[in-house]
């Protein structure tokens, strides 16, 4: 089922405007993430699509059909809650069967479908357990199976892995991707975790303060942030405030950035990622001198803090092997270059 959102807005009775004029389209069978910090309106948007909140303005079209004011029970969507919301007095089997019973499926159909789903979510043998007797990861799988049981046209997941520990979260992220490939159900999930959004979704909507800041593939969003918010929210980043000294040239510390469309004297904020900073022992072209002041172990990469003579140190991510081989330790003199950056005019300019 395709989802079409047109100019959707929602203000809560306490005056908080959660969603402001949001529009987007989602194709049948796609897997899309809504990424944003808490309070960005992402959950409210999802709940409006499910029919759990009523929008003040705008339209929701499911498969081209107007569904803005349709009751949640008539939308044929599956919803997975952050804290599972399993029926605690029912067994795993009864939880999964609930939606089918409500939709008046025959006993045979229910038996068949529940067995199929229990197998799909790898919970064989746990049919008679109650939610309290399951681990967090198992509970969330039951919740997904319960949502999928009545053959929803779209699966909505609200921070589905937020309450799980890192290891289980990774497993479930992989699992949900496989599940999507198998079932081909149009899937929309909400998350505040950019890694989760990037690794699962084929398409991401970045939301902030009730609006969609950017929409695109993970690669587009990571490499070409459309707004300053996206640049600083997605991926780790350095930012420095540079001054435009002459047309098409901004300067911060020893770095010169070629920028277009600014007048001399204007200030611009420059964003560049730590993995776009390259460090060498011997000077190459377009590099400046710096000194490593701090090193932090970050697993596959080492984060170096490098003093280059600006108002703050520059962060660089260097592969662990290279750091060790080149002897990049605290106090070492190095040469620093930047391979890519994004600039945004500072507010009020």
């Amino acid at each position: 089922m395709s989802i079409e959102i047109r100019h959707l807005s929602k203000t809560f009775p306490n005056g908080f405007q959660a969603v402001k004029d949001v529009s987007f389209n989602m194709e049948t069978g796609s897997l899309v993430a809504i990424l944003g910090p808490s309070g960005s309106g992402k959950s409210t948007l999802l709940r409006m699509i499910a029919g759990l909140e009523i929008p003040d303005r705008g339209e929701i079209l499911l498969t081209g059909r107007e569904a803005t004011l349709l009751s949640a029970r008539d939308r044929n969507v599956g919803f997975v809650f952050q804290h599972y919301a399993l029926f605690r007095h029912m067994t795993v089997w009864d939880n999964i069967a609930f939606g089918l019973q409500m939709r008046k499926a025959t006993k045979e159909e229910i038996k068949h479908r529940v067995a199929e789903l229990i197998h799909l979510v790898q919970l064989d043998g746990l049919e008679k357990r109650y939610p309290t007797q399951l681990s967090g990861g198992q509970r969330q799988r039951v919740a997904v199976a319960r949502a999928l049981a009545p053959h929803p046209q779209v699966l909505l997941l609200d921070e589905p892995f937020g309450a799980l520990d890192a290891k289980v979260r990774e497993e479930l992220q992989e699992w949900i991707t496989e599940l999507h490939e198998k079932s081909q159900v149009t899937t929309l999930f909400v998350t505040h975790d950019q890694h989760e959004a990037m690794s699962i979704a084929s398409h991401i909507l970045v939301m902030n303060r009730g609006i969609v800041e950017q929409e695109g593939t993970p690669l587009e969003i990571f490499d070409h942030p459309a707004t300053e918010f996206v640049a600083q929210f997605v991926g780790e980043t350095n930012y420095v405030d540079a001054v435009v000294t002459e047309p098409e040239l901004a300067i911060w510390g020893p770095f010169k950035y070629s920028v277009t469309g600014y007048a001399a004297g204007q200030k611009v904020r420059i964003y560049f990622r730590p993995n776009d900073v390259y460090i060498t022992s011997r000077e190459e072209s377009l590099q400046v001198k710096g000194k490593i002041t701090k090193t932090r172990f970050k697993g596959p990469v080492i984060e170096l803090e490098i003093e280059v003579g600006g108002d703050k140190p520059v962060l660089a991510h260097v592969p662990k092997g290279l750091t060790l081989a080149s002897g990049f330790v605290e106090g070492r003199q190095v040469f620093v270059g930047i391979t890519g950056f994004h600039q945004f005019a500072l507010p009020g300019q």
Binding site: A50, G51, L52, S71, A72, R73, R75, V77, G78, F79, F81, A85, L86, F87, F98, G99, M102, R103, R146, A147, A149, P150
Partner: peptide
């Protein structure tokens, strides 16, 4: 809410 979405 879960029950409602499931058609109850």
């Amino acid at each position: 809410e879960a029950a409602l979405v499931l058609g109850a």
